[in-house]
Simulated assay, not measured.
Amino acid sequence: MSKVALYVPLEAKPGKEKEVADFLKSALPLVNAEPGTVTWFAIQEGPSSFAIFDTFNDEAGREAHLNGKVAAALMAKAGELLAKPPTIHKIDILTDKLPK
């Protein structure tokens, strides 16, 4: 079972909503290359509101992701695409239900 997670809400700048969605979709191959990332979700919560939610079995996996290519790409594009810098919420997972 995954023990820790990240939740990162993202607010697109006006007119940049499609670019944020495209960026998130393009990040999947990078995440797939991360052995410590168990699950990864890029979601759209509203017209300009997006988020990333990902899970890890341990702190080492979470830290590897935070220091990986997706995080670096997001921070490099943040000023161009986002209304404000991303806020990274480190959360603990109490329980889960995943496919077997």
Results as ranks from 00 to 15, higher is better:
4 V>I: 13
6 L>F: 02
6 L>Y: 01
7 Y>W: 08
7 Y>S: 03
8 V>S: 02
8 V>L: 05
8 V>D: 02
12 A>I: 03
13 K>T: 01
16 K>M: 15
18 K>M: 10
19 E>Q: 15
20 V>L: 07
21 A>F: 12
24 L>N: 14
24 L>K: 10
25 K>T: 09
25 K>L: 15
25 K>W: 12
25 K>D: 11
26 S>E: 12
27 A>Q: 14
27 A>C: 14
27 A>T: 15
30 L>W: 08
30 L>Y: 07
30 L>C: 05
31 V>A: 10
32 N>V: 04
33 A>D: 12
33 A>N: 11
33 A>Y: 11
34 E>M: 13
37 T>P: 07
38 V>A: 08
38 V>K: 12
41 F>T: 15
42 A>K: 11
43 I>E: 15
45 E>K: 15
46 G>W: 11
47 P>L: 10
47 P>F: 06
50 F>D: 04
50 F>S: 04
50 F>G: 05
51 A>L: 08
52 I>Q: 03
53 F>R: 03
53 F>C: 05
58 D>Q: 01
59 E>C: 00
60 A>V: 12
62 R>V: 02
63 E>F: 00
63 E>K: 08
67 N>I: 02
68 G>M: 03
69 K>Q: 14
69 K>G: 06
71 A>S: 15
73 A>K: 14
73 A>R: 13
74 L>Y: 13
74 L>T: 07
75 M>P: 02
77 K>D: 05
79 G>Q: 06
80 E>C: 02
81 L>N: 04
81 L>Y: 07
82 L>T: 04
83 A>R: 09
83 A>N: 05
84 K>G: 06
85 P>A: 14
85 P>G: 06
85 P>E: 11
88 I>Y: 08
91 I>W: 00
91 I>P: 00
96 D>W: 00
97 K>M: 09
97 K>Y: 09
98 L>R: 12
100 K>T: 09
100 K>H: 08
